Simulated scan of single mutants.
Amino acid sequence: MADKKVNPIGNAMGLLRIRVIRGINLAVRDVKSSDPYVIVRLGKQKLKTRIIKKSLNPEWNEDLTLCVMDPNEPVRLFVYDHDTFSLDDKMGDAEFDMRPFLDAVKSNSQGAPDGTVIRKLIPDRQNCIAEESCIVWKDGKVTQNMFLRLRNVECGEIELQLQWIDLPSSRGA
Rank of each mutant, 00 (worst) to 15 (best):
N145Q: 13
K4D: 12
Q45A: 08
I165K: 12
L56S: 10
E62W: 01
C128N: 15
R151I: 01
V68P: 03
F101Y: 10
A94C: 07
I158D: 07
I51T: 15
L160E: 09
T84V: 13
R29Y: 03
M1L: 10
Y37T: 09
L121R: 13
C155H: 08
G115I: 07
K90T: 12
D103I: 02
D93I: 00
R76Y: 09
K48S: 13
M91D: 01
C155P: 00
G156L: 05
W60V: 08
D30M: 06
Q161D: 04
V105G: 04
A94S: 15
I9Q: 04
C67Y: 00
V153K: 08
D114V: 04
V31Q: 12
D166I: 04
E59T: 14
D97H: 09
R22P: 02
A27D: 14
N108W: 02
D124A: 00
K4N: 12
I135Y: 04
K90P: 09
A104S: 15
G111M: 08
G172F: 08
K4T: 13
F85S: 10
I158H: 05
I21Q: 14
R119C: 02
S170W: 03
D93C: 10
V40R: 05
Q110N: 11
V136L: 06
V142P: 07
I39Y: 02
W60D: 05
